[in-house]
Computed example of a mutant assay.
Amino acid sequence: MADTMGHSATATRNTRLALGFCLLAIAPQIFELIWSIGTIFGWGTGRGPAAVVTSHATALLAGAPSAIFGSFGGGAKMSSEVLLALIYSYPLFAVAILTLFMTIRSAQDYVGGVVLMAVALFALWASSDLQGMRGFSFGAGTAPRMFGGLLVALSAGVALTGLITEGPALAHYSWRGPLFVMAAILFFALAIRPLGLVVAAFASFMIAATGSHETRWLEAAIVGACLTLGCAILFPYVLGLPMPMYPRFLVQ
Protein backbone atom coordinates (compact mmCIF):
# COMPACT_ATOMS: atom_id res chain seq x y z
CA MET A 1 0.00 0.00 0.00
CA ALA A 2 2.87 2.35 0.78
CA ASP A 3 4.32 1.66 -2.67
CA THR A 4 0.96 2.45 -4.25
CA MET A 5 0.69 5.71 -2.33
CA GLY A 6 4.26 6.64 -3.25
CA HIS A 7 3.60 5.91 -6.92
CA SER A 8 0.40 7.99 -6.79
CA ALA A 9 2.22 10.95 -5.21
CA THR A 10 4.96 10.74 -7.86
CA ALA A 11 2.38 10.61 -10.64
CA THR A 12 0.63 13.67 -9.18
CA ARG A 13 3.88 15.62 -9.00
CA ASN A 14 4.77 14.63 -12.56
CA THR A 15 1.36 15.72 -13.81
CA ARG A 16 1.73 19.12 -12.14
CA LEU A 17 5.21 19.54 -13.64
CA ALA A 18 3.95 18.53 -17.07
CA LEU A 19 1.13 21.08 -16.87
CA GLY A 20 3.62 23.71 -15.76
CA PHE A 21 5.86 22.94 -18.73
CA CYS A 22 2.86 23.17 -21.08
CA LEU A 23 2.13 26.62 -19.67
CA LEU A 24 5.79 27.55 -20.11
CA ALA A 25 5.59 26.35 -23.72
CA ILE A 26 2.93 28.96 -24.55
CA ALA A 27 4.23 31.69 -22.23
CA PRO A 28 5.42 33.97 -25.10
CA GLN A 29 2.04 33.67 -26.79
CA ILE A 30 0.26 34.50 -23.54
CA PHE A 31 2.55 37.47 -22.97
CA GLU A 32 1.83 38.85 -26.44
CA LEU A 33 -1.89 38.37 -25.84
CA ILE A 34 -1.71 40.33 -22.58
CA TRP A 35 0.36 43.01 -24.31
CA SER A 36 -2.14 43.25 -27.16
CA ILE A 37 -4.94 44.08 -24.73
CA GLY A 38 -3.32 47.50 -24.34
CA THR A 39 -4.11 48.29 -27.98
CA ILE A 40 -7.80 48.32 -27.09
CA PHE A 41 -7.17 51.29 -24.79
CA GLY A 42 -4.73 52.98 -27.17
CA TRP A 43 -1.65 52.20 -25.07
CA GLY A 44 0.39 50.84 -27.93
CA THR A 45 0.45 49.80 -31.55
CA GLY A 46 0.24 46.37 -33.08
CA ARG A 47 -2.21 43.54 -33.44
CA GLY A 48 -5.33 43.26 -31.36
CA PRO A 49 -6.11 40.31 -29.05
CA ALA A 50 -8.27 38.52 -31.65
CA ALA A 51 -5.52 38.67 -34.28
CA VAL A 52 -2.92 37.43 -31.79
CA VAL A 53 -5.03 34.46 -30.70
CA THR A 54 -5.91 33.54 -34.29
CA SER A 55 -2.34 33.72 -35.61
CA HIS A 56 -0.78 31.74 -32.77
CA ALA A 57 -3.54 29.13 -32.71
CA THR A 58 -3.18 28.65 -36.46
CA ALA A 59 0.60 28.36 -36.14
CA LEU A 60 0.42 25.82 -33.30
CA LEU A 61 -2.35 23.66 -34.76
CA ALA A 62 -1.76 23.94 -38.49
CA GLY A 63 1.28 25.95 -39.56
CA ALA A 64 3.91 24.16 -37.49
CA PRO A 65 2.63 20.62 -38.25
CA SER A 66 2.54 21.50 -41.96
CA ALA A 67 6.13 22.71 -41.77
CA ILE A 68 7.23 19.54 -39.98
CA PHE A 69 5.65 17.26 -42.57
CA GLY A 70 6.96 19.30 -45.47
CA SER A 71 3.78 20.96 -46.70
CA PHE A 72 5.62 24.24 -47.24
CA GLY A 73 7.19 23.87 -50.62
CA GLY A 74 9.80 25.82 -52.47
CA GLY A 75 11.60 27.02 -49.36
CA ALA A 76 8.86 29.46 -48.43
CA LYS A 77 9.70 31.67 -45.50
CA MET A 78 7.90 30.71 -42.31
CA SER A 79 6.07 33.26 -40.23
CA SER A 80 7.36 34.32 -36.83
CA GLU A 81 4.49 32.48 -35.12
CA VAL A 82 5.32 29.21 -36.88
CA LEU A 83 9.01 29.55 -36.01
CA LEU A 84 8.08 30.23 -32.38
CA ALA A 85 6.02 27.05 -32.31
CA LEU A 86 8.74 24.96 -33.95
CA ILE A 87 11.77 26.29 -32.10
CA TYR A 88 10.27 26.99 -28.68
CA SER A 89 6.80 25.59 -28.00
CA TYR A 90 6.97 22.12 -29.56
CA PRO A 91 10.22 21.07 -27.83
CA LEU A 92 8.76 22.09 -24.46
CA PHE A 93 5.52 20.24 -25.22
CA ALA A 94 7.65 17.17 -25.94
CA VAL A 95 9.45 17.60 -22.61
CA ALA A 96 6.08 17.93 -20.85
CA ILE A 97 4.84 14.66 -22.37
CA LEU A 98 8.07 12.83 -21.46
CA THR A 99 7.83 14.19 -17.92
CA LEU A 100 4.64 12.19 -17.36
CA PHE A 101 6.59 8.93 -17.79
CA MET A 102 9.81 9.88 -16.01
CA THR A 103 10.95 9.06 -12.50
CA ILE A 104 12.32 12.38 -11.26
CA ARG A 105 14.91 11.93 -8.53
CA SER A 106 15.88 15.58 -8.16
CA ALA A 107 13.04 17.94 -9.02
CA GLN A 108 15.20 20.98 -8.37
CA ASP A 109 17.74 20.00 -11.02
CA TYR A 110 15.16 18.73 -13.48
CA VAL A 111 12.94 21.83 -13.41
CA GLY A 112 15.95 24.14 -13.41
CA GLY A 113 17.35 22.40 -16.47
CA VAL A 114 14.05 22.62 -18.35
CA VAL A 115 13.63 26.31 -17.52
CA LEU A 116 17.18 27.05 -18.73
CA MET A 117 16.37 25.10 -21.88
CA ALA A 118 13.30 27.30 -22.39
CA VAL A 119 15.46 30.43 -22.08
CA ALA A 120 17.92 29.08 -24.66
CA LEU A 121 15.17 28.05 -27.09
CA PHE A 122 13.51 31.45 -26.79
CA ALA A 123 16.84 33.15 -27.51
CA LEU A 124 17.29 30.97 -30.59
CA TRP A 125 13.84 31.95 -31.84
CA ALA A 126 14.32 35.65 -31.06
CA SER A 127 17.52 35.73 -33.12
CA SER A 128 16.27 33.40 -35.87
CA ASP A 129 15.96 36.19 -38.44
CA LEU A 130 19.55 37.37 -37.99
CA GLN A 131 22.21 36.67 -40.58
CA GLY A 132 24.38 33.73 -39.60
CA MET A 133 21.68 31.71 -37.85
CA ARG A 134 21.62 29.11 -40.63
CA GLY A 135 24.29 27.19 -42.49
CA PHE A 136 27.94 28.15 -42.27
CA SER A 137 27.59 31.87 -42.92
CA PHE A 138 28.82 34.27 -40.28
CA GLY A 139 26.86 37.27 -39.11
CA ALA A 140 25.04 38.85 -36.20
CA GLY A 141 23.26 35.57 -35.44
CA THR A 142 26.37 33.41 -35.20
CA ALA A 143 27.05 34.11 -31.53
CA PRO A 144 23.40 33.70 -30.42
CA ARG A 145 23.19 30.41 -32.30
CA MET A 146 26.43 29.14 -30.79
CA PHE A 147 25.68 30.16 -27.21
CA GLY A 148 22.00 29.21 -27.48
CA GLY A 149 22.90 25.74 -28.72
CA LEU A 150 25.50 25.38 -25.97
CA LEU A 151 22.97 26.42 -23.31
CA VAL A 152 20.43 23.91 -24.67
CA ALA A 153 23.00 21.13 -24.35
CA LEU A 154 24.08 22.16 -20.85
CA SER A 155 20.51 22.59 -19.61
CA ALA A 156 19.59 19.17 -21.02
CA GLY A 157 22.52 17.77 -19.02
CA VAL A 158 21.26 19.46 -15.86
CA ALA A 159 17.76 18.05 -16.44
CA LEU A 160 19.22 14.59 -17.05
CA THR A 161 21.05 14.87 -13.73
CA GLY A 162 17.68 15.32 -12.06
CA LEU A 163 16.57 11.99 -13.52
CA ILE A 164 19.55 9.81 -12.62
CA THR A 165 20.81 11.20 -9.30
CA GLU A 166 19.07 11.82 -5.99
CA GLY A 167 18.67 15.44 -5.06
CA PRO A 168 16.51 18.03 -3.31
CA ALA A 169 12.82 18.41 -3.98
CA LEU A 170 11.48 21.50 -5.67
CA ALA A 171 11.92 24.44 -3.31
CA HIS A 172 9.20 26.98 -2.64
CA TYR A 173 9.28 29.77 -5.21
CA SER A 174 8.40 33.34 -4.38
CA TRP A 175 6.55 35.14 -7.16
CA ARG A 176 6.68 38.61 -5.63
CA GLY A 177 10.14 39.57 -6.89
CA PRO A 178 9.74 38.44 -10.54
CA LEU A 179 6.19 39.80 -10.62
CA PHE A 180 7.18 43.34 -9.69
CA VAL A 181 10.28 43.26 -11.90
CA MET A 182 8.11 42.28 -14.87
CA ALA A 183 5.62 44.99 -13.91
CA ALA A 184 8.47 47.53 -13.83
CA ILE A 185 9.65 46.48 -17.30
CA LEU A 186 6.14 46.70 -18.73
CA PHE A 187 5.57 50.09 -17.11
CA PHE A 188 8.80 51.44 -18.56
CA ALA A 189 7.92 50.17 -22.04
CA LEU A 190 4.46 51.76 -21.90
CA ALA A 191 5.45 54.99 -20.14
CA ILE A 192 8.70 55.97 -21.87
CA ARG A 193 6.98 57.89 -24.68
CA PRO A 194 4.20 59.74 -22.82
CA LEU A 195 6.10 60.33 -19.54
CA GLY A 196 9.70 60.57 -20.72
CA LEU A 197 12.89 58.89 -19.55
CA VAL A 198 13.22 60.70 -16.22
CA VAL A 199 9.78 59.82 -14.85
CA ALA A 200 9.59 56.35 -16.43
CA ALA A 201 13.05 55.27 -15.22
CA PHE A 202 12.56 56.44 -11.63
CA ALA A 203 9.03 55.03 -11.35
CA SER A 204 10.16 51.70 -12.87
CA PHE A 205 12.95 51.39 -10.33
CA MET A 206 10.58 52.05 -7.45
CA ILE A 207 8.10 49.48 -8.79
CA ALA A 208 10.89 46.89 -8.99
CA ALA A 209 11.98 47.76 -5.44
CA THR A 210 8.51 46.82 -4.22
CA GLY A 211 9.35 43.20 -5.01
CA SER A 212 11.41 42.83 -1.82
CA HIS A 213 10.21 42.85 1.78
CA GLU A 214 13.60 44.27 2.82
CA THR A 215 13.37 47.46 0.76
CA ARG A 216 14.32 50.64 2.60
CA TRP A 217 12.42 53.33 0.79
CA LEU A 218 14.69 56.28 1.50
CA GLU A 219 17.73 54.37 0.26
CA ALA A 220 15.73 53.04 -2.70
CA ALA A 221 14.67 56.57 -3.66
CA ILE A 222 18.28 57.81 -3.49
CA VAL A 223 19.57 54.91 -5.58
CA GLY A 224 16.69 55.34 -8.02
CA ALA A 225 17.46 59.03 -8.42
CA CYS A 226 21.14 58.28 -9.06
CA LEU A 227 20.31 55.61 -11.64
CA THR A 228 17.81 57.91 -13.31
CA LEU A 229 20.44 60.65 -13.54
CA GLY A 230 22.89 58.15 -15.04
CA CYS A 231 20.32 57.04 -17.63
CA ALA A 232 19.47 60.64 -18.46
CA ILE A 233 23.15 61.28 -19.24
CA LEU A 234 24.01 57.94 -20.85
CA PHE A 235 21.21 57.36 -23.36
CA PRO A 236 20.60 60.77 -24.96
CA TYR A 237 24.07 62.31 -24.66
CA VAL A 238 26.65 59.50 -24.56
CA LEU A 239 24.87 57.00 -26.82
CA GLY A 240 22.93 59.62 -28.78
CA LEU A 241 19.59 57.80 -28.59
CA PRO A 242 16.56 59.97 -29.41
CA MET A 243 14.63 59.32 -26.21
CA PRO A 244 12.11 61.77 -24.74
CA MET A 245 13.36 63.15 -21.46
CA TYR A 246 10.26 64.70 -19.88
CA PRO A 247 6.48 64.17 -20.01
CA ARG A 248 4.72 65.35 -23.15
CA PHE A 249 2.48 67.79 -21.33
CA LEU A 250 5.52 69.59 -19.92
CA VAL A 251 7.33 69.73 -23.26
CA GLN A 252 4.26 70.93 -25.14
Results as ranks from 00 to 15, higher is better:
Ala107Ser: 09
Phe188Gln: 00
Leu186Lys: 01
Ala76Trp: 07
Ser155Ile: 07
Gly196Cys: 00
Ala120Cys: 04
Leu83Tyr: 08
Thr161Tyr: 10
Met102Gln: 15
Ala171Ile: 11
Val95Pro: 01
Gly149Gln: 13
Met78Asn: 05
His172Arg: 10
Ile185His: 03
Ser127Cys: 12
Arg105Glu: 01
Met146Val: 15
Gly141Cys: 05
Ser127Arg: 03
Ser79Gly: 14
Leu160His: 12
Ser89Gly: 08
Phe188Pro: 00
Pro194Ser: 02
Leu186Asn: 02
Met146Phe: 12
Ile164Ala: 04
Ile192Ser: 01
Met146Asn: 08
Pro168Tyr: 12
Gly162Trp: 04
Pro144Val: 04
Leu84Thr: 00
Trp175Arg: 10
Val114His: 01
Thr142Tyr: 07
Ser127Asp: 10
Tyr88Pro: 03
Met102Phe: 12
Arg105Pro: 02
Ala76Lys: 11
Ile192Ala: 02
Arg134Asp: 11
Ile164Met: 07
Phe188Arg: 00
Asp109Gly: 02
Arg176Asn: 07
Arg134Lys: 13
Gly135Asn: 11
Phe188Asp: 00
Tyr88Ser: 03
Val82Asp: 03
Leu151His: 06
Ile185Ser: 09
Trp125Ala: 01
Phe93Ile: 10
Ala85Lys: 00
Arg134Gly: 09
Phe101Asp: 04
Leu197Trp: 01
Tyr110Trp: 14
Val111Lys: 02
Ala107Asn: 03
Thr142Ile: 09
Ala153Gln: 09
Pro91Val: 07
Glu166Tyr: 11
Gly148His: 05
Gln131Trp: 05
Ile185Glu: 02
Leu197Ala: 02
Pro168Asn: 12
Leu130Ala: 13
Leu124Val: 07
Ile185Trp: 03
Ala183Val: 02
Met78Ile: 12
Pro178Glu: 05
Gly74Thr: 11
Gly135Glu: 10
Gly74Gln: 13
Gly74Glu: 15
Phe136Ala: 14
Gly132Thr: 05
Arg145Thr: 06
Val82Tyr: 03
Tyr90Asp: 06
